[in-house]
Design a binder for these strands. Structure first.
Lengths: 169, 169
DNA sequence: CTGACTGCAAACCCTTTGCAGACCG
DNA sequence: CGGTCTGCAAAGGGTTTGCAGTCAG
């Protein structure tokens, strides 16, 4: 819809450049996985990508999709959406409020703001569907984590008490 | 911090009223689980609640926490945060953008808006931590789902192809 | 008392990991 | 060719479910 062939081509060549710079191999699987996600305006899960790709790459396995996606994430070519792994969280605050999310520890704090109650939502959005509510998500590093000596800009998995599992190689 | 004893008491009496109206039993476990989440300004996961509650209720089991939380959710007393169950999603759009989330099917669509780039974030939030980015999340029902005859206001698990698993009893 | 509820254990789903063979560069 | 990468299968962690005993109303 808002994604032209040029956009996709630009993303693909960016991928080639970044991959070459990082010295990772441009395998058939990685190319197709990136092409698939770069061509999508939805935000597919690993499984959705896998199912779409199976048609082109019958031998593809789901774990390769996961590995490739995290690799692309580490290369800064894609992002993850919403609360990453972690677990489901519950909220007893039913009033209209917004969230401050710490990208390091995953902590979420509420805040309210009269200035953010009637946000100017573009008309284009109203064509996507009926709007029930709007809320602002502020991402950052909470004060507790700021004091922490560890310096890491965008850890994939905020809380991992049992030894490092992955980092951008 | 922003949660007074009155707030908690009000939430608790609201719970009593709603539970009585719905005809569900006010068990010791449910009361304590609700008290715990209603007293929290964080957004605890089931496991965090479980660990906190084990001190008071040594025989409590984690599955009871889950069942109670979903019950509270179905009663409209609490909400779930972020992408509910579902799986991890990936996004190849790295530009600053916002999201329209369909609460029925879970589909997420991007949109951009120059009017939403510099939101007036209250100073109180800056005390919570360092702000990296802000983005708006619009929740609603997408056009595809609007056409769908099924009428359900807030399904717990949008996509469940294999038979219904739970609904508000 | 009786049906709703709990605790237990096992199932379940999504995601990750160890290993041996396959392929890019 | 060598080291990276893939596919397989099995493990892992969080969540859900079936069942029999327990408890609120």
């Amino acid at each position: 819809m808002s994604l032209s062939k040029q956009d996709i081509a630009r993303r693909l060549s960016h991928f080639h450049a970044v991959a070459k710079a990082a010295g990772i191999k441009l395998t058939h699987q990685r190319l197709e996985i990136f092409r698939e996600i770069a061509s999508s305006i939805e935000h597919p899960s690993a499984e959705i990508l896998f199912n779409a790709l199976k048609l082109r790459l019958p031998t593809l396995s789901l774990d390769t999709v996961y590995r490739s996606l995290w690799l692309l994430n580490d290369l800064g070519l894609i992002m993850t959406l919403g609360a990453r792994r972690e677990s489901l969280r519950f909220d007893a605050n039913l009033e209209h409020h917004h969230h401050f999310v710490c990208t390091r520890c995953g902590r979420i704090r509420d805040f309210t703001s009269p200035q953010l109650t009637d946000l100017p939502i573009p008309d284009a959005v109203k064509e996507l569907g009926h709007i029930d509510s709007t809320h602002v998500e502020v991402r950052g590093i909470c004060t507790t984590c700021s004091k922490d000596p560890v310096e890491d800009s965008a850890p994939r998995n905020p809380k991992q008490p049992k030894g490092e599992k992955r980092s951008r190689s």
